[in-house]
Amino acid sequence: MAEQVITGWRKWMLGIGEQCVFFARFFRNIFAGGFEWSEFVRQCYEIGYRSMMLVGITSFIMGLVLILQLRPSLVELGAASMLPKTLAVSFIREIGPVITAIICAGKIASSIGAELGSMKVTEQIDAMEVSGANPLQYLVVTRILATSLMVPLLCIIGDAIGLFGGFLALNFTDSISFSLYFNKCIASLDFSDFLPAVVKSVFFGFAIGFVGCYKGYNSNKGTESVGIAANSAVVTASLWIFFIDAIAVQITSLLFYK
């Protein structure tokens, strides 16, 4: 029993070491020359476009539901006019980035994990390496940079759609014009709400790409390892996202909300 715990921890520590090495190799290969632009653009398209619908729908529903949930409390407090501001601040700062990132962890991290995992199992990665090409540069660098770029963009789109969902929900009961609603939202936001959220979602995107690539690239060679790679990519990436979120809020409050 104790032995199992010790070997478990040992494995975990070794895993951390391996991830550091993987990160170093990724980082070196960004600047190694011969950046794979066309593959990078293709990945951006795949990652961004394919997840847009899902992010859009979830953000829309989140915005709608939040207004419906918040409304009774705020009306009770006589602060119904605060609804747009409350939604805008909570959505831009926290809910938008986290929802988008979690959705992307489920969709993108798993598909990267499965794709690279199956390339590993079918020896495609070995074949690339043995041919003298650089699989890390072609497969890993492009994917990680693409997620780091696309997740923040998806997050911004999700924010806008979420606020729109809130507008519709508000119009179930009150009637507020579109321009008044959005003016209220924008007026309640400032730079210190927006910037940290975008920066944080860059890190979310990085975590999603990195974990997906790491799990896929280092999976074992049995057929069952493809499933394992995809699954553990989602679980690990989701954990990372909450972890980064917790750190981000500390840093943000130090820097902005004194």
Binding site: T122, Q124, D126, V130, S131
Partner: peptide, 19 residues
């Protein structure tokens, strides 16, 4: 290693085509 690998062709059991 890269220079060496350019001079060696390796045919994998499965073919290992990029699918």
């Amino acid at each position: 290693l890269k220079q060496l690998r350019i001079k060696i062709g390796f045919l994998f059991q499965s073919g290992a085509l990029y699918d």
